[in-house]
Amino acid sequence: MIYTVRLGSLSVRLARRHLLIGMGLLLALLIAGGMALQLGQFDLGAGDLWTAYRGELDKISQMILLDHRLPRVLVAIGAGAAFGVSGAIFQSMLRNPMASPDVIGFNAGASCAAVLAILVFGSARFVLPWALTGGLLTAALVLLLAWDRNGKSGIDPYRLILVGIGASLTLGATSDLLMSMTDEQRAADMAQWLTGTLNARNQADAALIWGGLAALTPVLIWLQFPLNRLIMSDDFVHGFGLRLAGLRLLITGVGVLLAALAVSVAGPLPFVAFVAGPVARRVLKTGAPVLFAAALVGALVTLGADTAARMLSVVQLPAGVFTAVIGAPVLMWLLVAQFRKGAL
């Protein structure tokens, strides 16, 4: 069953299956968000939000709910969605299931700069600006080195991937080396930052990630259309009359921006960007770029990881430890399920 939604000269085709699954994921996200709000020493939950907002609750409850729990949940959802979309658009653009923002070296550059900042300043205080600068510089450098001036397509996916690997592994090895050169305390600080955490997020963080997402949403909605064509070969894309070079540059820019937003509020949470696309594609059973579903899956994984991290109160572990612990089994389960059915 496929619906067609028309709006003037634009039309969008929606399969009922996809709508239902999208709503299911959204519902799951809402339930998970509600549960995450409930979690903690004080007996407060999503039901108290409205009274807290009106200022009818006592000061402490209001502070816990509005300044701590709600921003944390919002940041988890926002950062997860940003990572998920970023990964999904890189995977579609490069036509490679292993691609993610890491491919363009953003994460490696950010991590290396962060490690350097901790090594130089001795604490994790100035890490964020350094990490963002490092990530953006690396991405720009990789893009510059991969840019093909002669060809029509601007960025050759194969070339971008290889240049990205080169940059990522060199920077990763440098981080490892820097980490081995320092004392125990700094090494622990580095390991902590490199894992990615959602501890102590405030309203400013939530505003940053959601503001960024809101600003990018129109671009992302529009990107769905060219991305659907980009998964075909370059010749086809030319045949459709799309300008490959400019399009690829735009997509890379959007992807890096999303990753930068997510890293600035949650650190380099591993695996979210990688897993969201494949899981979304397998749940929806389509090869098309599925940005909205990838955003939901990324948000679910991140929120689940953070909730798991909070529930384990014996040892304080950052959320980054759990993103892969939650994401990887989901991917494995989907692989096994498909294997049984003989699909793929």
Binding site: P97, M98, A188, A191, Q192, T195, P270, F271, F274, V275, P278, L317, P318, G320, V321, F322, T323, A324, V325, G327, A328, P329, L331, M332, L335
Partner: peptide
């Protein structure tokens, strides 16, 4: 590839947790 990436990610996550 996907299975390898999933297993690697899971193991590295366990490593990160244990190291912290």
């Amino acid at each position: 590839i996907l299975a390898g990436a999933a297993v690697s990610a899971l193991f590295y996550a366990l490593i990160r947790g244990l190291l912290l």
